[in-house]
């Protein structure tokens, strides 16, 4: 230990900057490793993920395992074939904030998951076979 301190004392400022960078990068790496482990642990215990503005109704329905028509109905939207509009665009079209749209979807999901929830509304006008499965 004493020898190590003696050697460190002889370092130039450039060498000290490399040591400091090493310590900083190690701490940064450790922090992200910890976050990765924590995320993985959280992931294994929780079923639902947060709804984000980039998602669309089809993906939210897929992620939360609820029928897409329930979510379209909650937003007062007609199900269009291959509807790919993300929540951000829907919010703009409906003159709502993204958070408001997310809140409506979350409420609809809670209702759809309640025991004895009514069946999803009937599908809209005939369309391609995968109508309503928009991502």
């Amino acid at each position: 230990m004493h020898k190590l301190v003696e050697r460190l004392k002889g370092f130039s400022w450039q060498q000290w900057s490399v040591v400091a960078a090493f310590l900083l990068v190690s701490a940064f790496t450790g922090l992200h490793a910890f976050r990765a482990v924590r995320n993985a642990a959280y992931w294994s215990h929780h079923r639902d993920e947060p709804i984000r503005a980039w998602m669309n109704v089809g993906y939210v329905a897929h992620s939360y395992h609820v029928p897409p028509p329930v979510l379209y109905e909650a937003l007062g939207m007609e199900r269009l074939p291959h509807d790919k509009r993300p929540i951000r665009v829907i919010a703009r079209e409906q003159h709502r904030s993204v958070n408001e749209v997310i809140a409506i979807l979350q409420e609809a999901i809670v209702r759809a998951r309640q025991p004895g929830a009514p069946p999803p509304p009937p599908p809209g006008p005939p369309g391609p076979p995968n109508q309503g499965r928009a991502p």
Partner: peptide, 10 residues
């Protein structure tokens, strides 16, 4: 496929 956001964070 139903946990893309969490997978992306990880």
């Amino acid at each position: 496929s139903d946990r893309v956001q969490e997978l992306m964070d990880l």
